[in-house]
Amino acid sequence: MNEIKLGDVLVSRVEEMHGPIMPTGAFFPTIPGAAWERQRDELTPDHLGGEMVHTAMQSWVLRSEGRVILIDTGVGNGKSRPAVEAWDHLDLDYLGNLARAGVRPEDVDVVVNTHLHLDHIGWNTRMVGGEWVPTFPNATYLMPRVDVEYWNPANHPGLVGHVNQNAFEDSVAPVLAAGQVQLWEGHHVIDGNLRLAAAPGHTPGAGVVKLVSGSDRGLFAGDLIHTPLQLRELGHNSCFCEDPAEAVRSRRELLGWAADSNALVLPAHLSGHGALEIERHGDAFAVKGWAPFDRL
């Protein structure tokens, strides 16, 4: 099963790829090895294999108030990614997976990029006639203003060699040029069920989508966490967080909202069942239960 209902919103999970991505110590430099060992049984095999962290690249498709909303767009095909060999010039069937969820590119009304790292914007565009063009021709792309300004190479010296090298040029600039981008900052109402809220730290403009519909709650959490271990190890970030202190603050605040409101947490990168309910555990959090999505 890859669909669930939250209030009046139908939520579908669409995979791009999943599997091992980085060694634990490289991905999370400050998490001690003993912490991984304490939770190895719970993390294996969906989130940990040997010393390798396992993750997923996936999108969340929401059908809300008659519109199709796509949250995050993965790595993308054919993109030049010199800093990440495993993501360089991919050729994956993401659009086929989207079609199997009942969605054609022209059906998408809104694309939400929770932030502008390369693995959240890749399918914003695809190559047509030798040019990068918007994949979703009828969509409004909601992008955080702060990230658009920050990741623009004109404003961000040193992107050569950075993990985000080329990403703005091939996955953001063409959508801006097409006039399909709506910038937001602080908060933004998508519809009566969904709103964007700022979650800075991982990137300066990072955000999340909060779902409030009937008695159900959901938190489309972007990169607040990359592994369930961060529920217990709240103060530890991935190596990709631009402002570690702000990332911890956002994680604590928003996961607290999810725990207190019994919200389903749907991060961008959890493999296995992909989404979970959490509860407070001392001054941190723990897994309360997993969503009924099929395991990746």
Rank of each mutant, 00 (worst) to 15 (best):
A173E: 09
A198Y: 05
D216V: 09
A275E: 03
R249K: 15
H117D: 15
E185C: 08
L219Y: 04
P29K: 02
L70T: 02
A197N: 12
H188G: 04
A199H: 08
I31F: 06
P82S: 14
I121Q: 01
L270R: 03
H54K: 03
K210I: 01
F27V: 03
S261D: 08
E149H: 12
G192F: 14
L176K: 02
T73S: 15
L270H: 06
D147R: 01
N193H: 15
R145Q: 09
R195T: 11
H187Q: 14
P134G: 00
M143P: 03
S238Q: 04
A34T: 00
S271F: 06
S271N: 08
V265P: 01
A56Y: 05
I225H: 02
T135Q: 12
G158Y: 14
I31E: 05
T203D: 12
E169L: 10
W290P: 00
I31S: 04
T44H: 07
N237D: 08
H89D: 15
F136Y: 13
L62V: 11
V209D: 06
L266H: 02
L276S: 05
Q180V: 00
S64H: 09
L98C: 04
D191V: 09
E131W: 13
M143F: 06
F285N: 04
L229R: 10
L254W: 07
V287Y: 07
W290Y: 12
K288R: 04
G161W: 14
Q182E: 12
R13Y: 12
G25Y: 03
V172E: 04
T135W: 05
H281V: 00
M22G: 00
L48N: 03
T44R: 02
G272R: 01
D72K: 07
H188F: 15
H120E: 11
I21N: 03
P292K: 05
L296N: 10
G256I: 14
H162E: 09
A275Q: 03
P105G: 13
F168L: 10
H187G: 15
P23D: 12
D8N: 13
G50V: 07
D191N: 15
G205E: 02
P137W: 10
D41W: 07
E233M: 08
L196C: 05
T30L: 01
W123V: 07
D216C: 11
V172W: 05
T24Q: 11
R251K: 13
W151V: 06
G186V: 13
D294K: 10
A259E: 03
C241K: 07
K5D: 05
L142E: 02
S171H: 11
E85P: 08
T203Q: 10
V128Y: 09
N138E: 14
S261E: 12
V128D: 15
D283C: 07
G122E: 12
A154Y: 02
N262G: 04
W151Q: 04
A284W: 00
L276Y: 11
T30W: 01
P174K: 07
N155C: 06
V175I: 02
I71H: 09
A56V: 06
